[in-house]
């Protein structure tokens, strides 16, 4: 049991850092501008991240499994650990880093080490989603901007009522954002473990949690601990730097990026689109930070394109390439040590 907890710890640590960093993408501006209290934001994040993880986390996890099914618990520990180290390192370098990119790198490192061929079709799908997600988020932001602009500039809403609506709006899209973050990114935290661990179903009254859902619940709690223990600092420093925009702008950015994350996570939505005969998107863990950056750029473009930070675009590109490669290399090296120094089977 203790060994299992130790092996899971790297995933839980990744979950903690995800909560600490990514909560600012959702509630950064709202808390930074004092529209929403941190305690309220943290409570909403906690509830909805866990809900999203448990209810809708399976889709994106499945895609990671298809990329490479890490075979043993020690190997899963190493893959998640390598991803966490890469995230930490890239953060130090000031690059907009993503646990999604990192874990994919980690899995490819395992594939290389163990000699399993990486499914290039799945990899193409994942990389395509990474490139497409900020673009989609930007498009959503532009559309939402014009809808809100048309509506608000002609609406007869008292400034103070608007303030009230905006606060509630930020809470509601924040809840949606937290749900989408949990649904989409829980795969990064627990995806490598779900295929290995055989956990019996657990019945809690009305509903039954599958083994994977129990792991997602644990990962969701780890994310929440990250939110509660560390994200305030990130919200008050990094959060306000990324998005120096009005509360309504923040509402649009969060709604656009959360919708993007949701689209790449919801199996129900995917089935619904297929049923309608519409093109659907693959369920892939994407980066919430990059979805936010995409939405902020979209907002900038819609406002006339004067505030676009092209340096940031370059940094995203570097992050896309550097993060998975770094994680893959670290994963490969650590797997070697795990097998030859700690004598644990990793294949």
């Amino acid at each position: 049991m203790i060994e299992v907890i130790i092996y899971l710890s790297s995933g839980l640590f990744l979950g903690w850092s995800l909560g600490a960093n990514d909560a600012a993408n959702i509630f950064g501006t709202a808390v930074g501008s004092k529209m929403v209290k941190f305690s309220t934001a943290a409570l909403i994040m906690t509830i909805f991240v866990i809900l999203g993880s448990v209810v809708s986390g399976a889709g994106a996890s499945h895609t990671l499994g298809a990329l490479g099914q890490v075979g043993t618990l020690p190997a899963a520990f190493v893959v998640a650990f390598a991803a966490a180290v890469a995230v930490y390192w890239m953060t130090k370098l000031g690059l907009p880093v993503s646990t999604s990119h990192s874990i994919v790198g980690g899995i490819i490192g395992w594939n290389l080490y163990s000699g399993f061929a990486t499914d290039l079709g799945v990899l193409r799908e994942i990389v395509g989603a990474w490139i497409f997600s900020p673009i989609l988020s930007a498009v959503f932001a532009v559309v939402l901007f014009f809808i809100f602009k048309k509506w608000l500039n002609n609406a007869k809403i008292h400034l103070l009522h608007l303030d009230f609506y905006t606060r509630w709006g930020l809470l509601i899209v924040g809840a949606f954002g937290a749900y989408s973050l949990g649904a989409n990114n829980i795969a990064n935290v627990m995806g490598v473990f779900t295929g290995i661990m055989e956990i019996p179903d657990y019945n809690i009254g009305l509903l039954t949690l599958s083994g994977a859902q129990q792991l997602f619940l644990l990962g969701g709690i780890a994310i929440s601990v990250g939110v509660v223990s560390y994200s305030k600092k990130v919200m008050l420093t990094v959060g306000s730097n990324i998005m120096d925009i009005s509360p309504i702008g923040a509402f649009i950015v969060v709604l656009a990026s959360s919708t993007t994350l949701f689209i790449f996570a919801s199996a129900t939505l995917k089935d619904f689109l297929i049923m309608l005969g519409l093109p659907s998107l693959p369920l892939v863990p994407v980066s919430s930070s990059q979805a936010v950056v995409g939405a902020v750029l979209g907002l900038g473009l819609a406002k006339g394109g004067r505030n676009i930070n092209f340096k940031l675009l370059g940094k995203i590109g570097v992050g896309w390439i550097l993060t998975p490669i770094t994680a893959a290399v670290i994963s490969f090296i650590l797997l070697f040590f795990m097998q030859n120094v700690f004598i644990r089977s990793v294949v």
């Binding site: 501008s33 529209m35 400034l159 009005s246």
Partner: peptide, 11 residues
Amino acid sequence: YMLIPDSRADV
């Protein structure tokens, strides 16, 4: 009450 943060100074 920390209302209307972005218009407060103007108001």
